[in-house]
């Protein structure tokens, strides 16, 4: 029996990593506060437009929407990356389909008070989901369950855990980390970690 090299496993390696990142196989838990415990029957998700109009889904209504199963790479600004992660969620395209807006900016809000901002365009065209399942299991509270925003083309702090809503804005409004030194946009391939990067 020959020696099995990890190189033959088909796993992706450092060539797939943005600059300054290292590969990890586990899923580190980062949190700026106590983990909110939100039961699905208490959970709701609200999109609020720039005119104040609210579009709200209860858990039951949210789970009745069509879902997608994206496989995506995650890049955390603390320098770990995890490749080929499996999720299930509702595309933001589905949630925004009936929302009339001319806003260019979005601010995601979470249970627990966390916020993060991004251009609304980054939530459209198959680039973002409200994810409720990871690796085939219900999303654990430590990873943002019952549901989190998933915007994998930006650093992971943009993928707000415990998401409860998105406010659409005509002007950019920096979120929790963006107002304390972290980059307003956060593209890992351009290594936009901090203000001025």
């Amino acid at each position: 029996m020959g020696i099995v090299s990890p190189g033959f496993s088909g796993r992706r390696r450092t060539a797939d990593l943005p600059p300054g990142q290292y590969l990890t196989d586990d899923f580190p838990v980062l949190s700026a506060g106590p983990t909110p415990r939100v039961r699905p029957e208490e959970w709701s998700f609200t999109i609020t437009t720039e005119t104040g109009r609210e579009h709200r889904w209860t858990w039951r209504e949210f789970r009745a929407l069509p879902t997608e199963r994206p496989t995506v790479d995650l890049h955390c600004v603390t320098r770990w990356s995890k490749l080929g992660t499996h999720w299930e969620g509702v595309s933001l395209d589905t949630l925004l389909a009936g929302v009339e807006t001319t806003a260019d900016h979005a601010l995601a809000h979470s249970y627990g008070g966390y916020t993060t901002n991004m251009p609304l365009a980054d939530l459209r065209d198959g680039k973002a989901w409200i994810a409720f399942r990871f690796d085939g299991e219900a999303l654990a509270p430590e990873h943002g369950g019952p549901a989190r925003l998933l915007v994998p083309h930006l650093y992971l702090w943009k993928s707000a855990k415990w998401v409860r809503g998105i406010t659409l804005l005509t002007h950019d409004r920096p979120g929790f980390w963006e107002s304390a030194g972290y980059h307003d946009y956060g593209d890992p391939w351009r290594e936009q970690r901090y203000w001025g990067d």
Partner: peptide, 23 residues
């Protein structure tokens, strides 16, 4: 103090509100 995060977050032991953040 919450340190397993992109920055350090200090919260009030009484009400959990954020007192300070250091990045």
């Amino acid at each position: 103090l919450y340190t397993r995060a992109p920055g350090m977050v200090g919260r009030c032991p009484g009400c959990q509100a954020i007192l300070f953040r250091v990045v």
